Amino acid sequence: SDPSEDRAPESARVGNIPSSTSALKVPQLKVAESAQGPAAAHTTDTAGYNAMEESVSREKPELTASTERVNKRMSMVVSGLTPEEFMLVYKFARKHHITLTNLITEETTHVVMKTDAEFVCERTLKYFLGIAGGKWVVSYFWVTQSIKERKMLNEHDFEVRGDVVNGRNHQGPKRARESQDRKIFRGLEICCYGPFTNMPTDQLEWMVQLCGASVVKELSSFTLGTGVHPIVVVQPDAWTEDNGFHAIGQMCEAPVVTREWVLDSVALYQCQELDTYLIPQIPHSHY
């Protein structure tokens, strides 16, 4: 159930021909089969995070001529859309010479989310990475209204306002976009420790780096000194050995919190207090 199309920051360009055919990675995205229709094609874990990302398996898109002007500035990904909605975005992107990729990268400028009429969405990996990267996180209605009015409308009017977990109007995407000089995790050293489900560890690490944190791979690698705040992030329900995560405190002095601390902080683009996310640790033995 991992969102495989989000696994690594590679891009698939639509609308320009790469210098070599080997560089072309066409979105071959799968549809989750469901008797209840597209709305039930998501699996949500206890964290309220949509693990099964969206989309559609299609034939290789038709490439435009390399001489045609390509908008190098805009690059989009989509999240939560049905196959039909994805194809509408594809046509919109081609019309406006926008790069459409299946994986979010540093070059991505827009994340197009499936939302309700009030621009509230589910939480997906692309949603988190879009906010963390200060990108435009907009409703699919931006595409449909632009098509209806036959011009590209202003993104401000379609920015995602909230999500089904953290609140319907928290304005996290807007706050992140306007606060890239004040990253929420700066001054923190974060170790993403142990197993994680539904989200590859490297993507979680990239997320906290985008928010200004330094990533530490091992508990023994924390910088011990003033001005640096170490934090260990774990996902308790992913551990097979009972309560192993309670013993992390015996290996390092850092506070240990659940992954929800990261996800909530990123969604709201406000660093949350650790208290409600802390995992009790077995104290050091004193002999």
Rank of each mutant, 00 (worst) to 15 (best):
E260A: 13
V233P: 00
V70L: 08
E107H: 03
Y127R: 00
G15N: 10
L103F: 09
S285M: 14
F196H: 11
Y127P: 01
E85S: 14
D163A: 00
K135H: 15
L81A: 00
K135L: 09
P3R: 15
P195G: 04
T99F: 14
P27R: 05
K183R: 06
P280A: 13
M152P: 06
M251P: 15
Y49D: 03
T67P: 11
E5P: 07
R177Y: 00
E33L: 07
N243R: 15
A93V: 13
T258F: 09
E205T: 11
Q171S: 08
V14I: 06
E159T: 09
V234W: 05
R182F: 07
S1V: 09
Q36N: 11
F158S: 00
D6S: 08
N16C: 07
V137H: 01
E118V: 05
G80S: 07
M76G: 03
V70T: 12
V160F: 00
P9L: 06
A238V: 11
T258I: 07
N166T: 08
I190T: 02
K174N: 04
A35L: 09
Q145G: 01
V112P: 01
L263G: 01
H170R: 03
D181T: 15
H170T: 05
A117D: 09
L268N: 11
V165N: 03
R150I: 05
Y140D: 15
M207R: 01
S11H: 05
T99S: 08
T101S: 14
V137L: 11
I98F: 08
A254R: 15
T99V: 02
P173I: 02
Q272V: 12
Y49K: 11
D6I: 04
P255V: 15
V56R: 06
A51L: 06
S34R: 08
H284E: 10
H42S: 04
G48Y: 03
L63T: 09
M74P: 04
M251T: 13
V31K: 12
T223Q: 14
K25R: 14
Q36V: 12
N169L: 05
L204A: 04
A12V: 10
V14A: 03
H42E: 04
S22C: 08
S11W: 09
Q235K: 05
G162V: 00
V31Q: 13
G167H: 03
K30V: 13
P255D: 14
W136I: 04
R177A: 01
T258K: 14
S285R: 11
G167F: 01
M251V: 14
S34T: 11
S66Q: 14
E54N: 13
D237R: 02
T101I: 03
L129K: 03
V26M: 09
A40F: 15
R168Q: 06
D6F: 03
V234P: 00
D264R: 07
M113N: 00
P283G: 03
E106S: 06
F158V: 00
L29F: 13
C252A: 11
S139L: 01
F86E: 04
V262R: 02
E54G: 12
G15I: 04
S1N: 05
V256A: 04
S34Y: 04
V112A: 02
F92V: 05
L103W: 07
K91R: 02
K25D: 15
S179V: 05
